[in-house]
Structure formats: structure tokens, C-alpha cells
Design a protein around this nucleic acid. Structure first.
Lengths: 147, 147
DNA sequence: ATAGATGCAAATGTTTTGCAGGAAA
DNA sequence: TTTCCTGCAAAACATTTGCATCTAT
């Protein structure tokens, strides 16, 4: 098992919450961790089935929600109505190529700071934000087509 | 008719595109313009029905898409999976209260500039962006509850 | 007369839920 | 042996589409 640390984190989350450690949960976490990047529910389900044919769609959905609660995954929603998951790591936002679907992560202190100022100006208490830039990546510029 | 300017814009858009000017389209635009703010498809449909009981859900959806194409409305998607529409006006982003649903518009040159820098750094060509800050508004801070 | 619009019902696509059977503690 | 999980099928939910009918031009 190559993702030992995360498997342990999952195990202790399950234990703490009186949930059960099942082979499905272990398998889904394992497949998910090997992806790196931003995977859709559908694609993740397919990958899971490759190695574990018995696992159902429902279990993948439920398990990914569990992994989010456990702090191992993050759910993302870009502009195409499909849920994507990524491995939880330090905060960042996204650049999305609307032609090839490439997703690049970025991080900008100046923007974070500006957000804080805005939130303060309006008297809000900030919980989270969502900042996505949509455009064409280097490879896709000059191309006519779509997707 | 209080929204004369926009009705004329609609009329000329329809004419230019060989589409027909119907009482439904006129009525929906009129109701929409009187809203100000960010209205969901559902709420808009209800409002439309108040004054025009015959109009169907489908027509509201189709007409709002038309109004977007005509540059009179903008479609927004926040984090709750429901489409909202607002009157097209100068560019801005949004602050959303996750308790009461209040939506506040903001605009920040510094952020816009920072975005351009990021996009350039990654070689992207920017088409649009989406920037939403989620939190609790002044009125909702200190409240326990939800929604 | 005819291209285009409407409204209903049915379809869609994604995610969630009910439930009976199955596995972990 | 009880509690929690699983997988299937069905439901949910917001939106879209097919189609027969109707209407603006």
C-alpha cells in the first residue's frame, strides 16, 4: 500500500466517528490518491471499477463525501455542472482552459489580502471563497475548434 | 410600460435575428427588469405566473436564455446548484451570505489587475472569471442557525 | 401561409435516497 | 448480533427536449 499515511488518517477518522473500515473505502481512497489532479465523480468511478469491479456508483459518491469530511479530499465545482475532487492541500485557486479542460492551480497573496479588505468593508465574516479564471491555455490558443 | 428602453432593445434583437415578438417574451422581460437583484429561475417563474398565469416554466427558461444572448441579462451560478439571473450591467463579483442568502456586488481593480498578471504568467488568454466570497453578513453574525 | 414560439409531458444528467441483504465491530 | 455499509433501483432536482398546437409575421 503506497498511500500509507492517508490510509492511516482514514482509519483514525473512521474509528473516531464509530464508522467501519471497509475494503471499498480503502480501495476508493487508494485509487483517488493515485490520481493527482482534479477528477470527476464519473472518471473516478471508472478508475475504481478497473481494479474493483464490484464497487457501485453510490459507494463512490458516499465515500468521497466521507473523505471530504475527513479532510483528505476537497470537492470542486467548475462551470460544467460536474463535481470534481482533488487531494486536500494548501489553499489555492484555479485557472481552467475551456477548450482542453486543463486545470492549473494558482495562489496569490495580493488577492487574498484584497478579499479580506472587501469582506471587512461590507461587514462580512469570510468563510470561504471561489475564484476561477476561465480562458485558453497556451496549447489551445490559435485553435479554432472546441473541446 | 416602465421598461421601455429594454423592451426596445429586445424588439430590435428579435428583429435582427428573425425571431418573433410575443407577449410572453415581453411579459417575462418586464417582470425580470422590475426585480433588481439576483433572482432564481424558480422565483422568476413564480413572479411571472402572478401576473401571467398561462406562461410555462419552459418559456421562462427559454426566454431568459434569449435575454442573455441579447445582452439584457446575465446568468449566475453560485454554490447551491440553482441558476440565478441579474440585469446586465458593469462588471462585478459577488459576496454571498450563506445564512440569509443576501448577495452583495463588489468590484476591485486591484484584483482584476492581479488576475491579468496570473493569466499572463501561465500563458493563458482570459475569457472570463468567477470570484465569489462566501461568509456571514453583518445581520447574520452571531446567529446560531442556518439558512 | 409559414417560420417560429408555446406549453405540456417526457427525457436528461447528476447526485441522493430507500431498502433488503451483507459485512465489520 | 448489532450497527453500520453496500449496491441496486428508484427518486430527486434543475433544466432541456420532442412534439402537436398555436401565433406573429
Amino acid at each position: 500500500m503506497s498511500n500509507d499515511l492517508e490510509q492511516k488518517a482514514l482509519a483514525s477518522y473512521l474509528e473516531d466517528h464509530n464508522l467501519k473500515h471497509t475494503k471499498q473505502r480503502e480501495a476508493i481512497l487508494d485509487v483517488f490518491l493515485d490520481i493527482h489532479g482534479h477528477i470527476t465523480s464519473e472518471a473516478l468511478y471508472q478508475k475504481v471499477r478497473d481494479n474493483h469491479p464490484g464497487i457501485g456508483y453510490t459507494t463512490v459518491y458516499r465515500t468521497m463525501k466521507l473523505l471530504c469530511d475527513a479532510g483528505l479530499a476537497i470537492e470542486r465545482h467548475f462551470d460544467d455542472g460536474v463535481t470534481r475532487y482533488e487531494i486536500e492541500h494548501e489553499h489555492h485557486d484555479h485557472l481552467v482552459c475551456v477548450r482542453c479542460g486543463k486545470i492549473v492551480e494558482f495562489e496569490c497573496q495580493m488577492i487574498e489580502k484584497a478579499q479580506d479588505d472587501i469582506v471587512e468593508r461590507y461587514g462580512f465574516r469570510l468563510l470561504r471563497h471561489r475564484h476561477e479564471l476561465y480562458g485558453h491555455c497556451t496549447d489551445c490558443q490559435g485553435r479554432e475548434g472546441r473541446s
